[in-house]
Write a protein that binds this DNA or RNA. Sequence first.
DNA 1: GCCTTGGATCGACAGACGTCAACATAGAGG
DNA 2: CCTCTATGTTGACGTCTGTCGATCCAAGGC
Lengths: 131, 131
Amino acid sequence: MSNQEFVVLGQDGPGGCCPGLLTAPLAEDQATELAKVFKALGDPVRLRLLSMIASRAGGEVCVCDLTPAFDLSQPTISHHLKLLREAGLIASERRGTWVFYRLLPEMTDRLAGILTRPAGEPLPEPAQAPS
Amino acid sequence: MSNQEFVVLGQDGPGGCCPGLLTAPLAEDQATELAKVFKALGDPVRLRLLSMIASRAGGEVCVCDLTPAFDLSQPTISHHLKLLREAGLIASERRGTWVFYRLLPEMTDRLAGILTRPAGEPLPEPAQAPS
DNA sequence: GCCTTGGATCGACAGACGTCAACATAGAGG
DNA sequence: CCTCTATGTTGACGTCTGTCGATCCAAGGC
């Protein structure tokens, strides 16, 4: 069950966290890895699942509490949970009969950092004729 | 050209910004709107395009500077730019012969806020048997 | 007017994605 | 061992998405 295929993401610069996406042109392979995570977030069902998991007091949710919240079959929910897990956004653990999911805050933190622009952004000025 | 179909997103609570996604279960229509934006980010080409636009000194990029950076046809790049525009992430403006794109930082700011968890997150404790 | 150049749009096609029913698997409890 | 419940996996199906070539529109220069 704990076979999450962690997404590694082209690492943070040695000095601080996350080059940015908004500051540097973003290399091709970094873009590919990042896109997988954003793609996992690009579905309403998965967003709601993640939201339900993350906002749960105690930090863990049983699948049996997630499934009835949707008009979807159980295999479909399971499929979406798998995608979120493969994206490195959540982790699962079996305890007895039930499987519990919890948020992996490292990934959401990373995304938030990637989408945050640096404080001293240069003021935009109209560009001239291009090259 | 300025016909960006702004994504509205179920609004921020009156007191502060962005209920969170990580704090409350996220309503169905909010999830749908949010998913559109994340889906726009869920492609390596669009991520690189956004990155190139956002990191450009001056804040604006001509399409003619974006297209040659990819091994893709010009219509394909134009298609991706359209999706980013419809997601509310960028805006375009024609000046003379060329079309310039610029980042709309409101949307990336909003996403960053949505992915940021509140400071005092309760410590996760193993849950008991579910309902 | 015509031609050229920069971009957007259209139509088509292969591949990816969301969904389901059917089946498989893992514990719990007889 | 057998059965029942809770989840994951598989195979199939229709739809959406990324890509292209062909075409069209806008602006400039002749």
